[in-house]
Amino acid sequence: MEEDLTTDLTVLQGHLDGMLNRVHANSATLQRFQTFEKGLFNLNSLSEMMEYVLKAQDFFELDYIGLCLIDAKTELKNYLFKGGFALQANPKLIILPDDELIQTKFGHSVTPYLGAYKTAKCAEFFSLDKHKPASVAIIPLIRRGKCLGTLNMGSLDSQRFIDSMATDFIEHMAAVVGICLENHLNFETLNRSSLIDSLTGVNNRHFLEQRLGEEIAIAQRSTEPLSCFFLDIDELKNINDHYGYHVGDQVIILASAVIREQLRNNDVLVRYTGEKFIALLANIEQGQGIEIAQRIRYAVKALGVSTPDGLVSVTISIGCSTYNPVNGVQLKPANVETNLIEKAEQALHKAKSDGQDSVVSASGFSDPMTLANLFKRHQ
């Protein structure tokens, strides 16, 4: 009898020890989740969020953590690119063109998958360079009934994720990630709509006002040239009067796309007014700028715009100016801005008066004494 009681007490003690261990483990897990959430809520951009989540495996002692996100309109890629996020350097972020993969694997269920790594079910959610995880958790990110993608976690421990385990922490984490993702996407969309021209999809004048000072400051720090193009589609008023504004709008859309194609990804292109555009090209000196402007002119001239009378050709006039910073000379950015734009605009007027369909370059400026004279009227 006494031996049986001792055995029962030993078993009970074992159960209690196990329960205490689980309590301690759950408490530690909760603390890690709370630390992770605090960091997540304090991030300022979509790019920061991506980097934070993809590096969070140490928070949870995992061997893999990644995301599959749906990007039907390629907006996500654009936002990340502009935020400086390197997609190729972060293969654990998988971009999906639609929700077909998630629908195929999950149907309309929003229940996470926890269990063994099965190639047929899991492979497309994981970008693996070495070992396959033994167990995984694939959790759909759902916001307002819409699937944004999945959060994917993996462990070499086959018992880390099993189908019988509670999913409270994991689902809560996925919900927080989904909320933050939605908020950042909404912010990027709102910010983009305030800085993007709705007709052409290029940046607008408000964006130029923000960016021009930054480009000049960068040029002064690096002492590298900054070139500016002032571009004007020729005879757009006549096209509008003869064919209607819908054709005129088509001319603007096609011309802006051609201009964009001739520029680098880091060059700035804005629709300044109606048929006028401004481009900023960092580290492009005067001669290079003229060559690029000529390429733009030839590309626009090759356009054919459909009208009731057949294809109509389009031409463009371009004025160029270049700022050449002097090492150790810090000019007021506002003065450089004014002069850079004005010189490009003066060159544009010369191109228009010379018969249009041409490129005219103003002389570059860098001499501080010359600048002091030029800027007297702006001080």
Rank of each mutant, 00 (worst) to 15 (best):
L156C: 03
K146H: 13
M165K: 08
P140R: 05
R143L: 15
S135K: 01
D129R: 11
L128Q: 10
M153N: 08
I142A: 08
P140L: 07
E124T: 12
R144A: 14
Q159V: 11
A137H: 03
I138N: 01
G145W: 10
L156H: 06
V136Q: 01
S158W: 07
L148E: 03
M153G: 07
C147N: 15
L151S: 06
M165Y: 11
L141C: 05
C122H: 04
A137G: 02
K132A: 06
A134G: 11
L128C: 09
F125A: 00
F161I: 07
D157Y: 07
C122S: 03
I142C: 08
E124A: 09
A123T: 13
A166V: 15
K132R: 06
P133L: 03
S158P: 12
F125M: 02
H131N: 11
R144Q: 14
G154K: 04
T167P: 10
C122E: 06
Q159H: 10
G149L: 05
R143D: 14
K130F: 08
M165N: 08
F126N: 00
Q159P: 10
C147S: 15
K121H: 14
K121T: 14
G145E: 11
I162P: 03
I139F: 02
V136H: 00
K121N: 13
A123P: 12
A123Y: 12
L148Q: 04
F161G: 00
G154N: 06
T150M: 02
D168Q: 15
D163N: 12
P140T: 11
R144T: 15
I142M: 12
L141Q: 07
K121R: 14
E124V: 12
T167N: 05
K121F: 15
G145N: 10
H131F: 10
F125K: 01
C147Y: 14
D157H: 07
V136L: 02
S164V: 09
F126P: 01
C147H: 14
